[in-house]
Design a protein around this nucleic acid. Structure first.
Lengths: 261, 261
DNA sequence: TGGTAAATCTGATATGCATCAAAAAAACTT
DNA sequence: AAGTTTTTTTGATGCATATCAGATTTACCA
């Protein structure tokens, strides 16, 4: 539960939702801005009514004009493949920015849909660019966030290209765990905001495969699952599975040294 | 053959390699900068000795300090997976920027290696950020370039997640074709700078599969191949294969309309 | 120029996961 | 609370592509 927020009182958004008082500011755009600068940022940010589950933040093809920071809840990005199938390209948790891949387009290249009741901060991009003129820290922060997303995408490409089903699911779970932890939630016990179907779609696996891997992980006491509730019982083994392919258990430094020749 | 460049005369780099006279400037960082601004950009850019095939621009783990624009030749990005296997995450052609995914890191997250004799422009990132302070157009150009890379990455994720071997190779070839075309080369006849092995690695396929698909494409007169030389004989069909999965041939506008409900 | 190594291609076999089918459980609806 | 739909799970089967093995071509180097 996001601390410091009074739920249900949405009529004084300016009071409830300033960046300065936001518990997420240390993970979000305002990092390393001073109070005055945060205040300026605050002025261009609009707080929107919460999205209900299934509602869209924007559709693929909509005119690009804003990026969004997730405040609570979660968002999925997805595109339609040419044969009309949905392809999920990202899940966004609180403090994460949505819509950055539309910057050099007329229109958003993917859709963004709420996985549950979700609140976001709307940041008109033109005004963000203006403000960035004045605030070097804000400028670098935007670059850093995009750079990090690039890195995450490469990781995802490696997952899709080289990892098997178990490694994919293990990676997915440990990754979520890490992100929850940074946001102040338990890294061991959390609720998946997405369906098995969506997990499979994202990981390049059939639903049935995801389900089977969940079952296998439970049988080996790696995790305990109850619907969307996940408990990680053995983080070490799960992380090992996520990182290391097939055989080869940690051959410590040798590999690194050998490759230098 | 890059026009306007005198090969072999590398002793007057300042003369040969100003952004203003560079044939790639309309695709690279200088887009939409005026002459004066380009001149300022020029001052912070260092031209390096050409890299020979196999030489590194930087290694995964090296301290991040510069981004690079490919001037001629080509670069591959790759990371080592935890079991010591190489995973290629990108190929870069002239005018493309290398190293952007290191911005928020101490160190480069991937290695960059020349696929052939390659010249690059070295752009110290700190100085680029300083200059960006003064030049709003440069600022947006960096954002646009990163945003485009984000979009390309999502496309790649979709390829790895949903497309079969033929679609992957077709996508790869048409994508290369497009990029060569934009750079003034023939979109129908070009030389692959990378090996079959590297293509397979990048596309998440075994070498043998890449080879077989090449053969099949030749048998269906989609392409003609001679070693690394590729001729695209039937661009329409190749593009169709790249874009459209399995069955369903182009159901024109209906899909778009139907999905609006 | 010949000789060796590396890359590419082709065929045979194996396998991990998708697909199909259907039951079980959970989530909505009235 | 009962009925309906949706999601999740489990099992049986098939297929695309990996893997293994070997031939062939190309590249490299003394």
């Amino acid at each position: 539960m996001p601390k410091g927020q009074l739920k249900g009182i949405c009529f004084h958004p300016s009071k409830e939702t300033k960046c300065v008082t936001c518990s997420l500011s240390s993970l979000c755009l305002p990092i390393s801005l001073n109070f005055e600068d945060i205040d300026q940022l605050d002025k261009i940010i609009k707080r929107r009514q919460p999205l209900k589950k299934g509602e869209h933040l924007f559709h693929q093809g909509d005119r690009f004009d804003c990026v969004y920071a997730v405040r609570s809840g979660s968002i999925k990005n997805y595109a339609m493949t040419n044969d009309g199938e949905e392809q999920i390209t990202n899940f966004h948790l609180p403090s994460e920015l949505v819509g950055l891949d539309g910057i050099d387009c007329e229109t958003y290249p993917v859709s963004a849909k709420a996985l549950e009741t979700t609140t976001v901060c709307e940041i008109p991009f033109a005004r963000l660019e203006e403000l960035a003129k004045e605030l070097p820290e804000l400028r670098s922060q935007v670059l850093r966030i995009m750079s990090r997303e690039l890195r995450d995408d490469k990781q995802m490409m490696m997952l899709l290209s080289k990892k098997n089903a178990e490694q994919r699911v293990a990676t997915f779970l440990t990754n979520l765990s890490t992100r929850f932890k940074r946001r102040g939630y338990s890294p061991f016990t959390f609720r998946l905001p997405m369906s098995r179907n969506e997990i499979g779609n994202y990981l390049g696996l059939a639903v049935e495969t995801v389900s089977r891997v969940f079952t296998r992980f439970q049988n080996s006491d790696l995790i305990a699952v109850n619907g969307k509730e996940v408990h990680i019982l053995n983080m070490d083994d799960l992380s090992a599975l996520a990182g290391l392919p097939d055989q080869e258990q940690k051959i410590p430094q040798e590999a690194k040294l050998a490759s230098e020749g």
